[in-house]
Design a protein around this nucleic acid. Sequence first.
RNA 1: CGGGGUGUAGCGUAGCCCGGUUAUCGCGCGUCGUUUGGGACGACGAGGUCGCAGGUUCGAAUCCUGCCACCCCGACCA
Length: 491
Amino acid sequence: MAEKITKREIDYSKWYLDIIKVAELAEHSDVKGCMVIKPYGFAIWEKIKDQLDKMFKETGHQNAYFPIFVPKSLFEAEEKNAEGFAKECAVVTHHRLMNDPENPGKLMVDPNAKLEEELVVRPTSEAIIWSTYKKWIQSYRDLPILINQWANVVRWEMRTRLFLRTAEFLWQEGHTAHATKAEAIAETEQMNGIYAKFAEEFMAMPVFQGLKTESERFAGADETYCIEAMMQDGKALQAGTSHFLGQNFAKAFDVKFADKEGKQDYVWATSWGVSTRLMGALIMTHSDDLGLVLPPALAPIHVAIVPIYKGDDQLEEIKSKLGPIISELRSNGVAVKFDDDDNKRPGWKFAEYEAKGVPVRLAIGPRDLENGKIEIARRDTQEKNVIDLSDCVKEVSRLLEEIQTNLYQKALDFREKNIQMIDSYEEFKSKIENGGFFLAHWDGTAETEELVKKETKATIRCIPFEGDKEEGVCMVTGKPSKQRVIFAKAY
RNA sequence: CGGGGUGUAGCGUAGCCCGGUUAUCGCGCGUCGUUUGGGACGACGAGGUCGCAGGUUCGAAUCCUGCCACCCCGACCA
């Protein structure tokens, strides 16, 4: 074993970092809290991005791009938003460096190049976008505006973890403008639904959809919708959010429109985003102690083919046998990697593709050639079979589908096993230590929420849409509650 | 921001307490050969401002001072 992976049960956090390392997804950069996303990791992100982008476009959105810098005066316009993000903003104050007269060969900030107005490196783009929308919107005929951007943002976090929370991260942020409240709410819900669909169908990751409580809400939003997923250690990960922003930004940036009657009104807004954090979710949902496990829908390589041969003659024979099969697979949309790198031996390749989570592996050597067979192995269950070469294409397609379904089912079963209804706060306090989701009644107050957080470190992940809406009494205060909410410790 | 840790070749490390030839070992890298069904082996070879800056000393990776960077734990976290 060239590279060891710490077992999950020994140190989950170390395991997570080891997976990222052995699968070559990312590494720490020389900048605190920032990461380098390596080609294989980025290939997965591109798959995520391409699929989401398609889904956004199918629902009428267009991509655009807004600047990374936000003048401070714009940034502070929406008070709550500004306040919420102020503590973690990188700020540009100068625009030039100069040679340091005291230290030859060194540079210093040119004191004469101080900016008149500081520029905030966007932690999110509502401000710059709404200041732009003001110019674009005069009439109801200009609405709705349905725009998304793929961008990087910076949040100067105290404590970072690869993919889950980095100082700079990649994401998409949708920013829409509507004539009516109902339409904006429908948009918010639609996009949260798209996130849920993407999580479940492509990431094979079950999620709960719901609303955030007021204290967990996005700064500047009237309502925050979210998808919440359970990781293998029983902790919750907020995987995506969709915000109904009301008229807060329209008021802050004075964006009004004339309706059909010629009456002026403020525009209704939404914003919604998912980030490279999804990579973390993907890793922690499916991977095992051997490495990454990827759902076929997002795997950059679906099938790795490892030829086993002595000498060029055998390799040529394998190539000519597999040529048509590879072409057929590819024309079926299967991403095939035929690995005839002579510098690596088969055993090395097996381990490598396992670590990288490639869903299906084919191996073929002289023994198989003689019998017209090929070995097929699936990553999720580690099963290996020898099948007829003629069944190969069919079997690969079948397996890819089965793996996708199986991964989802496995994750769903895990979640079911680790979620429970609970009515006693005492019981909750002891059980929450081991992770898992808890459906409990809550009196709806921020005070109770805060108390639970203080005493157990668990938070209300969301007020879920699904499930019974039976009334009850708060597990902490005994006051009335309209429905159960999800408590969990979160990333 | 508090606590802890680390910094020596691309990576991981030994040496540091107790200063002294040419800075240790493994992986990786290069050449050649043998290999190839679960992370091959041999031979030869290349690769170092010992984080940075001062200081002490005949002599510093090692001792002292200052600085920087990153990691881990905590607080914080839409």
